[in-house]
Nucleic acid binder design. Structure first.
Lengths: 225, 225, 225, 225
DNA sequence: GATGAATGAGTGTTCATTCAT
DNA sequence: GATGAATGAACACTCATTCAT
């Protein structure tokens, strides 16, 4: 996508838009469609999303959606792929190698929590994909690139913690990743039903830090000797 | 009508059918519709579900769905309500009062984990409801009855643990419920995408007990001094 | 189709129509759709036909076409089936058993020629189906009922002609049917291009009898000793 | 441009392509488009044909189709014209003047039958054109050149047959052409539906000669005294 | 209460064709 | 001459819902 060629082009795209002549800039068109589509899919789900709605909020026409993305499923898949790719980019950029194990782990957990909390749209896309049994992720190429960063970070930290005699033996990076994800993901994904049933005390703006600390604490107490 | 709670009704329904006179048994008709609808909604989501599909797999006609449930949303709401009601019934039936705090907590966590794992259809309905921002649960009466059981159990256990000097101070039943739910729910809700990206090693049939123990362990280590 | 229940119902259908209330008469609705669809398909071909055009010229809506016929292909198939069925009915009604072989054969050929000439819509449907490689006839049940009448008539006539020493040996009913069909069919199917290239002298209204006689003559001269 | 008649062009086209410079050879481009278009139209009909499919299977782009042929109808008309022109070329090349009337007629009939049987694509184009009521042939210039060869051949043969006292009086070349065409054309045009209904015994590969002989026989018996 | 028939408003998709460079 | 981008109008088809009996 356009993002790859980025830099000057994006700026050009915006200038072109400002001049009212965004034509002949396919990357800008595609990016524009994807942005709107991501919102629509995240808000209404795959079946609930309407191509017409997406087209209406785009700088181009419905026809161009089909020109570039083939069909509704193709568009959804691209939205999903871009979402995963962006996340992966953020995970990789975390620099934890210089920190001692405990601090590194705490930072990774807190970062994961924050990231989920700050990207509810991504969370919703993943929820939606799970509602569809992962059928679209399964046929996508991105999955092959996704595995690494998060797990590698954890393996490094856990290994260093073991060596330093700080962490318990017998745990695995995959398991830890699963637990960290569960605590971070659920806090966003199930917020609606949870607050309806139990009130929103846990989600008061000034208590977000508490919740993150609780999650960090939970992971650390689980891992440390 | 609470048809879902009655075991006998299904059998009655079948007998009535066998006699060719189930038409005079409105409860059986409603139960039949709800059963089929729950499957359809859980499988395809709210927007993805088709009234026609539900009607086709029901012993009665499409007209009856509208007769008894008003519209698609009404049917979905009833499905959601029955699902929550059933869960609540199961939670209440857990008898932990006789157990010492640590054992009680471990049992409650394990039970929650198992329950989620054994009821993916319920998990999916909750996911779907969250995709729809909890809009249907919000207008339902069931929420008022839902709060209690799980939290009360936890309050009792946590209080007894504190008294016995086994548990840390400063935690809350609500927070614990949230954490237990997160770990249990995510293992079902995100199984599709998680296994696609990281493989299904965590979900091997013979490792289900490991995962439950890990969750129990995580909660206990978090709560205990 | 309606034709099966015919008699009083059709009349009722017409009365209902006259009263402006044709509703609740599914057979009349289906017959109406099929009539319009036959015209549309015969005029524009399968790909060229427009469901919207059919619906517009029908007493019902586009939606009903899908309600009764599933999709465009289903409608086309039904049109084709009804066309073949009608033809077969006419073939069977020919009573040739009482005539001497030569006269019987002449009458059968003339009748076939006239029938084709009088039913250009049927001819066009068969042309269209051949353009589509017979794909729709192949999956239809009617083909199984179609074989008989025409061939049986010919077999009887040819057998009697042989016995009477009037006809040559070594011919077959199937081959004769093929030849009679070719001469009759082509005169309708290729009329447009033929008259464009060679003028319409052969198709002058007062020469239709000549053409039929030529076809009869051709077949008789071929069959007779 | 008459590209279709030249055998060498195709090779030239390939050479040009091999040299990477076929772009400068408009005739090769046009021929290429026409070849692909003929297949597409013959296979799917006029309405069923897709410009995109044609473009995709061409060495050039969709734009060139419009550049050279105006629109879909223009392209179809050119395909039709080239097909007729090719046929006419073949008819003219038949040398029958040296043969005695009966042999000449038999050869002409057999040749017509074979030609139709060997060019189903041409037959299909003519069928398609007839489905469209000859509208495109009507506005084409080729029709004016088409009349002659076949009829002239027949006139010559029939005249010589009459003179020799071998043929019946009162027939016409046009009528004979019509009958020969009918028997030859139908065997290809209606093969799909005919074999579906009556089986393919008449079309067994080893019986093609029989069918041709039957057609020859039918015409000869019709013409001879 | 119950049924098959009926429907307006969308819903994703495709078509031949033209524009900008 | 040549290309990829762009498009309006239509296209087949579907949906939740209601009507007539």
């Amino acid at each position: 996508m356009g993002a790859l060629r980025m830099g000057g082009e994006e700026a050009e795209g915006r200038n072109a838009l400002a001049r009212g002549s965004w034509k002949q800039d396919p990357d800008a068109v595609k990016t524009d469609i994807l942005r709107v589509a991501r919102e629509e899919f995240a808000t209404h789900g795959l079946s609930g999303a309407r191509i017409d709605h997406i087209a209406a909020r785009t700088r181009t026409s419905k026809r161009m959606i089909y020109y570039y993305f083939g069909d509704k499923d193709g568009l959804y898949r691209r939205v999903l792929e871009e979402a995963y790719r962006t996340v992966r980019g953020r995970e990789a950029s975390l620099d934890l190698a210089g920190l001692p194990p405990v601090e590194a782990l705490r930072k990774l957990v807190g970062h994961t929590f924050d990231h989920h909390r700050d990207n509810p749209e991504f969370i919703r896309l993943v929820m939606i994909e799970n509602i569809h049994h992962g059928a679209h992720l399964a046929v996508s190429d991105v999955i092959r690139e996704l595995n690494s960063a998060a797990i590698e970070n954890l393996e490094d930290i856990y290994g260093r913690g073991l060596e330093a005699g700080l962490f318990r033996e017998g745990l695995s990076a995959l398991q830890l990743h699963w637990q960290i994800s569960a605590l971070s993901f659920f806090s966003v994904s199930n917020r609606a039903t949870f607050t309806l049933i139990f009130g929103d005390s846990l989600y008061a703006p000034d208590r977000r830090g508490d919740m993150r600390r609780d999650v960090e604490e939970m992971v650390l107490r689980y891992v440390m000797k």
